[in-house]
Design a protein around this nucleic acid. Structure first.
Lengths: 195, 195
DNA sequence: GCGACTCGTTCACATATGTTAATAAGTGAA
DNA sequence: TTCACTTATTAACATATGTGAACGAGTCGC
């Protein structure tokens, strides 16, 4: 189970955990299971935890003034997810997080997260790299959103994340791409006809 | 001059530098001046440096398939800027960075950046917080881009960054918001008429 | 096996934003 | 001053995407 975590760390920083580091993480986290459609975090409330998914899937979303949900991030096994805004600032969250399938996660609360980072330069480094990579991916996504039409964004998304296309409902992918589910349906139809 | 940097660090992590830490940073950075319209980084080439602006302004942008520039980030005095993708991955850049005014910056190359982070847990921490804050802001910006119309995005932008509206050309702000300069002009006209 | 959902599709029509082109004000260099 | 260049504005028309509504195929609980 913590195998996934070890791999995650290895991939990010190129080396694996010592036994002490591993113990440090275990002491400050716990495992928890969630049903499908469980809210892990809710808009307006403080998001106290960061989740590392071991099994299942979840997504975060924002609700706009018209009440529409817009997906922000998807997470499958091996992904971290939280409301970064709320978690890091200790303010009420702007996003909600919901499981899509029955899900199992390693859970770390804010206090323990800070402790882990303080007592281990390695973990501080790891989490810097982790958020750095997330930043780079997000920046690219925004750049494409601002400079490319929906059809190309969808094509790029489905090539980059075929596993999301498989497991995430299409109407959520649409909002993730910044369009309506009907529009994505139309785009997919055109792509299929042209092919 | 390094005053700005000290403030920047203080604001991010709540305490200031020791003399050794300050010396560490100085040993691994240098000051440089640039004319207006200087390319600090160029698409296709490795972005070797991160810049902390002490004076002037700059912006990063992506060029899409039609050859249109789209602003990614703006930087004024007290802001950090680089092509994070290229800088952190050591790959050819996807963005370019150009000064908008005569500019002065503290410059750190990748190697020294890593050294600073390795030899000081405090700097590792600072840069984690820095990129964390950048991530949170970026995520919110993307969430709004995907869920809000251009008029509201412009209003929010100009309230959040009045200093950008002052100093950054309007056509660049338009591309930053994901619209054409003509559209921003139209939106501004409507806002003015309604008022 | 039945009703209640959820999800994807399709369609006719609406609207925000893009496109192209022209104009004008402002700035800086010669 | 004049010329070249950059930036902002405006207008008529084009197009991608949104809107609202209907329909059908799954799926789940009972």
């Amino acid at each position: 189970m913590q195998d996934l975590l070890a791999k995650n760390i290895l991939r990010a920083i190129g080396h694996t955990l010592t036994d002490e580091e591993f113990a440090l993480f275990c002491r400050h986290s716990f495992v928890k299971s969630f049903d499908r459609k469980t809210l892990l975090s809710q808009e307006g409330e403080h998001c106290k935890y960061v989740y590392f998914l071991v099994k299942g899937s979840a997504y975060s979303y924002i609700v706009n003034d018209h009440g529409d949900k817009h997906a922000i991030q998807f997470a499958l096994e091996g992904y971290w997810i939280t409301d970064q805004y709320s978690f890091f600032s200790n303010r009420p969250g702007m996003y909600s997080i919901e499981t899509l399938e029955p899900t199992e996660a390693l859970v770390v609360n804010k206090e323990n997260f800070e402790k882990i980072c303080q007592s281990s330069h390695m973990f501080e480094h790891f989490f810097r790299i982790l958020i750095q990579n997330a930043f780079v991916a997000l920046q690219y996504r925004l750049a494409r959103t601002n400079s490319t039409d929906a059809e190309h964004r969808y094509l790029e998304f489905s090539q980059l994340h075929p596993e999301f296309v498989q497991r995430i409902p299409q109407y959520l992918i649409a909002t993730y791409l910044g369009i309506k589910p009907q529009s994505l349906s139309r785009i997919r139809k055109e792509l299929a006809e042209r092919k």
